[in-house]
Design a protein around this nucleic acid. Structure first.
Lengths: 168, 168
DNA sequence: TTCTACTTTCAATAAATATTGAAACTTTAT
DNA sequence: ATAAAGTTTCAATATTTATTGAAAGTAGAA
């Protein structure tokens, strides 16, 4: 396998994996393309390499910038925008964790806050239901705390601790 | 809010949250319905309460059983199937972690295994690319190990340790 | 075996999501 | 100011994913 083929493979697969992760294929592919490219790429180059339209490229680049996985850079004497990806994979992971926390965990907590006050006699049924709500809330809060920890940690520190967690 | 309304709200929102989590709405709603129901429910009852077709109900119940979040139970003297949800939320979380690991992490590791042997001179470009592949692999393996740890742990033990992790 | 109650499958259809491409908009150079 | 180069938006369209419902399949009772 040549390096060119390997990069192509990486881009294709990153796209496929992205869909499993609930991010759209093009977004994941652009991210992969920028990860494996040496220098910054223009919108034109991204469009060409991935065979996608200008609109599609634009929208997904913008979303990647919102996720803080991609930055816009300027080249001296060039009018158009160029883009680079964050190459520090641990930083990428922390960023993704942060965003998924917001999208996946926070809605649960908001939901549970909303359901708080239930009228009615405190019979078996209500007690069971309240226990469920309480358990889900506790889990969500703990998971949130874990992610906050991850987001704040240095890579080596974090995995070092996790390693100890499960061996000693 | 009455308990009935609260349960309704829970089911609707669990469905909406499910879509964020990449599971289909109906599957999440059936899960929620079974979680808040006191006894086992038949396919008919699920269809009626969620206003969905028989085929839809059947397929999603089956998938929930594959995920090991729902079990089939038999009632004495009843011919049709009844279903219950696993109510231990920590067990549910572990189960979901296990499945998402398989769907989201394992493909990455498989991908990287596949790209291993790249021909060509060991220039700057190749070195940078290999570093990327290596970093992604290390992250995926570490995340996998973390999830394996979660899957094997008792709830209190796990969160107790995580709590210590980020305070001391 | 046939009838009946129930479950599963799957082609057709609906709904949700992603993509295109051209028009509108913005910015810089002249 | 106007033109040129580049960017953004968004209605139309294509693609993917979920859902329906009826037909085929299964298993227990008579």
């Amino acid at each position: 396998m040549t390096i060119k083929e390997a990069k192509q493979q990486f881009i294709q697969s990153w796209g496929a994996i992205g869909t499993q992760w609930g991010v759209n294929k093009t977004m994941a592919q652009i991210h992969a393309l920028l990860l494996v490219s040496n220098g910054p790429l223009s919108t034109e180059e991204i469009m060409e390499q991935l065979s996608i339209s200008r609109g599609n490229a634009n929208m997904n680049i913008r979303e990647l910038m919102e996720w803080a996985l991609v930055d816009k850079v300027f080249k001296a004497g060039e009018r158009r925008d160029f883009f680079i990806a964050e190459k520090d994979i641990w930083r990428v992971a922390r960023q993704v964790a942060k965003i998924r926390k917001k999208r996946e965990l926070e809605p649960i907590i908001r939901l549970l806050d909303q359901i708080e006050n239930i009228e009615g006699v405190k019979n078996e049924e209500l007690k069971t239901f309240l226990k469920l709500l309480h358990d889900v809330r506790r889990l969500a809060l703990n998971a949130e705390r874990l992610i906050d920890g991850i987001v704040k940690s240095e890579e080596n520190w974090f995995w070092g601790r996790v390693f100890k967690l499960f061996t000693k």
